[in-house]
Amino acid sequence: TRVETATETAWISLVTALHLVLGLSAVLGLLLLRWQFPAHYRRLRHALW
């Protein structure tokens, strides 16, 4: 049971790290898009909202 718990903890930390990385890359990508294509971003936002 001790090994299982350790594996579970490792998986949880791995998944958390993955989610953090994905979230950060998504935010960075959005910022980059907004910085590179302001007109396109505004049009996209206008279409979405």
Rank of each mutant, 00 (worst) to 15 (best):
V27W: 06
L28V: 14
P38Q: 15
V27D: 00
L44M: 10
Y41V: 13
W49Y: 02
L28C: 13
L28P: 04
A39R: 07
L31P: 02
G29E: 01
A26R: 00
V15M: 09
T1I: 08
L24V: 09
S25K: 03
E4H: 06
A17N: 03
W11V: 14
W35T: 06
W49H: 04
T7R: 08
L44Q: 02
Y41F: 12
Y41A: 14
V15L: 04
A26L: 15
Q36Y: 05
L14H: 05
L18D: 00
I12P: 09
L22C: 11
A47W: 10
E8Y: 09
W35M: 04
L24A: 07
S25C: 13
L14W: 15
T16P: 07
L30Q: 01
T5M: 03
A39Y: 11
A10F: 14
H19P: 15
L24Q: 01
T5P: 03
V21F: 09
H46S: 07
T16K: 06
P38Y: 09
T16G: 08
W11P: 08
R34Q: 02
I12Y: 14
L32H: 02
W49S: 11
G23P: 13
W49Q: 10
R34G: 13
A47H: 06
G23I: 15
L31A: 09
V15R: 12
R43W: 10
H40Y: 14
L32Q: 01
L30T: 04
R42I: 08
R2Y: 15
A17M: 08
L20T: 09
E4Q: 05
L18W: 03
W49F: 05
L14A: 07
Y41W: 13
L32Y: 12
H40W: 13
A39M: 09
Q36T: 05
A6M: 08
S13K: 14
A6T: 04
S13H: 12
G29K: 01
A47Q: 04
L30M: 09
V27N: 02
T7N: 09
H19L: 15
G29T: 10
H46F: 06
I12Q: 15
V3M: 04
V15P: 05
G29S: 09
E8A: 03
L33M: 12
P38H: 10
Y41H: 05
L14M: 07
L18R: 04
V3T: 02
T9E: 12
L22N: 00
S13N: 11
R43M: 13
L22H: 00
H40S: 13
L48I: 10
S13G: 13
S13W: 15
H19K: 06
T16R: 04
H19T: 15
H40R: 10
L32D: 00
A26P: 15
E4I: 08
L20W: 08
L18Y: 04
L18N: 02
W11D: 07
L33R: 02
L14R: 09
T1S: 09
T5R: 01
Q36A: 06
V21E: 00
L30N: 01
T7A: 12
L18Q: 02
V21I: 14
G23W: 06
T5G: 02
G29Q: 00
L48D: 00
R45S: 07
R34H: 03
I12N: 03
A10P: 10
G29M: 13
L28E: 00
L31G: 05
T9Q: 09
T9I: 13
T1L: 11
A10N: 15
V3I: 10
L22K: 01
R43I: 05
T16W: 09
L48P: 02
R34T: 07
T1K: 11
H40A: 15
L32A: 11
H40D: 05
A10G: 13
H19I: 15
L31N: 01
G23S: 07
W35D: 03
T7M: 08
R45F: 06
F37S: 09
T9W: 15
A47V: 08
G23Q: 03
T5E: 01
E8D: 08
H40F: 08
V21L: 09
H46T: 09
Q36R: 12
A26G: 15
W35F: 11
S13D: 05
V3G: 01
L14V: 13
V15N: 08
W35R: 08
A6S: 11
W35H: 09
V27L: 12
L48H: 01
W35I: 07
A17I: 10
H19A: 15
F37T: 03
A10I: 13
T9K: 15
L30Y: 13
R2A: 09
S25A: 09
R34V: 14
L20A: 10
L44E: 00
T5C: 02
R34K: 14
H46M: 10
V15I: 14
R45D: 01
V27M: 07
I12S: 12
H46A: 07
R42A: 14
R2G: 06
L28W: 10
V15H: 06
L18G: 12
F37D: 03
L33A: 08
L31F: 14
H40K: 13
R45W: 11
A10R: 13
A47M: 06
I12H: 07
V3F: 03
L14D: 03
A10E: 11
V27R: 00
H46N: 11
L14N: 07
R42M: 12
I12M: 10
L24G: 13
T1N: 04
W49R: 05
A39L: 11
R34D: 00
L24N: 01
L33S: 02
T7L: 05
V27F: 12
T9N: 14
T5I: 02
S13E: 05
L32R: 01
R42F: 11
L33F: 12
P38F: 10
T9D: 15
W49L: 04
W35S: 05
T1R: 08
L24F: 09
L22T: 06
A17W: 04
S25V: 09
V21H: 00
T1Q: 12
L48A: 03
A10Q: 15
G29Y: 01
H40L: 14
T9C: 06
L31Y: 10
V21Y: 01
R34F: 14
G23L: 14
L24M: 13
R42L: 11
L48T: 06
A6K: 07
A17H: 01
L44Y: 03
P38G: 13
L14I: 15
W11N: 14
W49K: 05
Y41S: 06
W35P: 04
T5Q: 02
W49D: 03
T9Y: 14
R42S: 13
S25D: 00
V15K: 15
E8L: 02
R2H: 05
R43L: 06
A47K: 08
T5N: 01
Q36I: 07
R45Q: 05
F37I: 07
L30P: 05
W35E: 04
R2W: 12
W11I: 12
A17P: 03
T1D: 04
V21T: 06
H40V: 12
Q36S: 07
L20R: 01
V21P: 03
L28Q: 01
T5H: 02
T16F: 12
R43K: 15
P38S: 09
T7V: 12
V27G: 11
V3C: 02
A17K: 03
G29L: 12
